[in-house]
Computed example of a mutant assay.
Amino acid sequence: MIDLLDIKVDVVFKDFFGDKSSKELLESFINSVLGFEGDDLIEIEEFLDPRKMRVEVGRPSTFVDLSVKTRGGERYIIEMQTYNHEGFDKRLLYYLGKDYTEQIDYHYHQQATETEQKKKQKKLIGWQDLPKVHIVAIIDFHRSEREKNGILNNEKVVETYRFKPEISSSNEHLFNQWKATLVDLKKFKDKPLAELKTYKEKWFYLLKNASLIKEKEANALKQDPVFQRALERLERLSSDPATRKAYEASVNEHRDHLAVLSSERKAGRKEEKLEIAQALLKQGLPVNQISEATGLSSEEIESLR
């Protein structure tokens, strides 16, 4: 059995779930995570272009991992994030708002000629017709390096956030157009494959452990048709030289980025310790006590005088 690639890495994640011929994989994942059953089950009608540029404050541009439209007309944004971007939660809000409002700009009546199209364009939908937008963000990072507590506030792997009025529930319909679901893989507790009973648990297991799965575990997962197709898809990607090359480049870039972040954090902590030491010096505390309290050397503290 070929060594499987890590689905969480962006180039693999986009190819794995973004393959139009295997849309049932993304449908299964979304329906399982969000607990949709019966008439609520979604079917993907269209994969939207994820390369649509979205301007970010202080950055040239960015784009989402996956964006789809369901047969019911709703739109789903799927994001995979393995390290803590500054302002990540605000980015999710931006994506929701951008996807929601930009639909007005992409629905035009086609005129007879190209010249007429440029001169007069008629919108097919209005504000009252805008479909709902739901973002599903899969997270695999710790919000706090010190506490190692994942991103969510409790032990739930999945949390869905809705926008509701503070006081009156009578106007709830005005606030139900956006939803954001966070899937925190750090909160998913590993357990033997035989104990995984639901599609949701199996998807979490595959996302978290794909690169660690052995042949015995793969064969057990393949007993289910959905995960047989999923593993066959991942095996094809893992055996493709171009995908492996892009994967390795992405992993190296990710490692370099984390090294830079770690260096910046250490520099920030050192600066904070120096500031504390300087304040303690002004209060007249002995150098040896300041050294014990801050972890700085006597020489570093003396240099602050």
Rank of each mutant, 00 (worst) to 15 (best):
G97R: 08
Y108C: 04
Y83C: 04
M80C: 12
Y95A: 06
K90A: 08
Q81D: 10
Y94M: 11
R71C: 10
K118H: 12
M80Q: 09
L92Q: 15
R59A: 08
L93Q: 04
K69Q: 09
T113V: 10
Q110G: 03
E86S: 13
S67K: 07
Y106F: 12
R75E: 12
R71L: 13
R71D: 11
Q111M: 14
Q81T: 06
S61E: 09
E114L: 15
Y94K: 12
Y108N: 09
E74H: 07
D65G: 04
T82P: 01
D99P: 02
K120S: 11
D105K: 07
E56I: 14
T113W: 10
A112P: 00
Y76L: 03
K120I: 14
T62N: 13
Y95L: 06
Y94S: 11
R91L: 05
K118D: 14
R75Y: 14
V55T: 08
I104L: 15
E79D: 11
Y100L: 11
G73T: 13
Y108T: 13
R59I: 00
V55N: 06
Y108P: 00
K120V: 11
T113N: 08
D65R: 10
Y94I: 14
T101V: 12
F88M: 12
K118N: 02
T70H: 01
M53Y: 07
T115E: 07
T62P: 00
R71Y: 13
E86Y: 07
G58D: 02
S61G: 07
V68C: 03
K69R: 14
D65S: 07
V68M: 03
L96Q: 02
Y95D: 09
G72T: 13
D89F: 12
D99H: 10
N84W: 03
G73M: 09
G58N: 05
L92H: 07
D105E: 11
Y95M: 04
S61Q: 08
G73V: 11
K98A: 03
A112D: 15
R91G: 07
V68L: 01
Q103I: 03
Q81N: 10
M53F: 05
T115Y: 10
F88K: 00
F88T: 11
K120A: 12
R54A: 10
R91Q: 04
V64G: 00
T82W: 08
N84V: 06
Y108K: 15
K90L: 14
E116S: 03
A112L: 15
G73Q: 13
S67F: 02
T101A: 13
G97N: 10
T115C: 00
H109Q: 11
T101K: 02
S67W: 01
I78G: 06
G72S: 12
E79G: 06
R59K: 13
V55I: 06
M80Y: 02
V57R: 06
H107K: 15
K120N: 04
M53C: 08
Q110M: 15
K69F: 09
Y100F: 15
N84C: 05
F88G: 05
H109M: 05
M80G: 04
S61W: 12
G87N: 01
F88E: 14
T113K: 01
Q81G: 05
K98P: 00
Q103L: 06
V55R: 09
T115K: 15
E102D: 14
G58C: 03
G73L: 11
G97Y: 06
E114R: 10
E86W: 00
D105L: 13
K90W: 10
G58R: 08
K98C: 02
R75Q: 09
G87W: 06
L93Y: 09
G72H: 02
G72F: 01
F63R: 12
S61T: 04
